[in-house]
Design a protein around this nucleic acid. Structure first.
Length: 271
DNA sequence: CCGACATCCTGGGTGC
DNA sequence: TGCACCCAGGATGTCG
């Protein structure tokens, strides 16, 4: 589900809810595909701990507990974090009860592509899931992207989705940024000139900043922890618009598959 | 090292 | 209503 703007929106809603609060109780279901750490370990490490901060690393959230370490959370395709806005069901894997917070906080994920991993102090510096991440997709330079494109024959769309290059970009925002930069998603990365990598850098930053401002794109399973919604889906120019007229030239938007992911683009505007 | 591909899992939508 | 099939915001491991 969530890309950088969605994860950041969730983080921003979560901070005022739980920062500084003590975790009174933790319950978790039996270990399943989403648990990289044993649920019992997570329960033990979290119980009684106090939330020091919630950070975002690409699409990961880091729930930092004072003195103890941190819970690394990835929401995969369908992961959600919410409180009383929704009823918990069989897809809830973990429930956190906070001191001074009337309602519990739930981690729910029907497809279980999300991840929960406990990190002892210091492990965040050695955990490959974190150390392999590239520059944050909200703050990278055109030079960095240009270097990353050098000698790479992979499609630029796939390169943008590679988290070890840019941490946080995902399918929606990669398509939207490529449209704005007028670059076709199938172009091999090494064929982009510096003007194009510059335009793409600017386009990705702009689209992500705008999406964060609007609270992300509320489609399918995406929800905010407090039940509110994001509005960036209203501004999607290509994603999910196959067959619809390009907003610039009215040509029908095309959908194709690149690197096993759907890609949406205007065959006329994007070269 | 690079890139293509299968795989993990569940639910919603569509067409027969 | 049932069923087969396709699709989905992600990431990893394997293989050539």
């Amino acid at each position: 589900m969530p890309e950088l703007p969605e994860v950041e929106s969730i983080r921003r809603k979560l901070v005022p809810m739980v920062a500084g609060r003590r975790i009174r109780d933790v319950s978790a279901v039996a270990r399943n595909y989403a648990f990289l750490s044993d649920p019992g370990i997570i329960r033990k490490k979290l119980s009684g701990g106090t939330v020091e901060a919630i950070e975002r690393r690409g699409k990961y959230l880091l729930l930092r507990l004072k003195q103890r370490g941190a819970l690394l959370i990835h929401l995969g395709m369908t992961g959600q974090i919410f409180s009383h806005a929704y009823e918990p069901d069989k897809h809830v894997h973990m429930t956190l009860v906070f001191a001074g917070l009337r309602h519990p906080v739930y981690f729910r994920d029907p497809r279980k592509f999300g991840k929960l991993l406990w990190l002892d102090p210091g492990e965040e510096y050695t955990e490959p899931r974190l150390t392999k991440l590239g520059h944050d997709a909200l703050s990278f330079s055109a030079e960095y992207l240009g270097k990353a494109c050098r000698n790479r024959s992979v499609a630029i769309k796939s390169l943008l989705l590679n988290q070890s290059v840019l941490a946080g970009a995902g399918n929606i925002y990669a398509d939207e940024a490529l449209f704005t930069a007028r670059i076709r998603p199938t172009r091999r990365a090494r064929t982009l000139n510096s003007k194009e990598t510059g335009a793409l850098t600017k386009a990705l930053r702009n689209v992500l900043e705008r999406a964060v401002k609007l609270g992300g794109s509320s489609i399918n399973d995406y929800i905010h922890p407090d039940g509110s919604e994001g509005y960036f889906q209203i501004e999607h120019k290509v994603y999910g618009r196959e067959g619809a007229p390009c907003l610039t030239c009215a040509t029908a938007i095309k959908r194709s598959v690149i690197g096993q992911r759907s890609a949406h683009y205007c065959p006329r505007c994007q070269r």
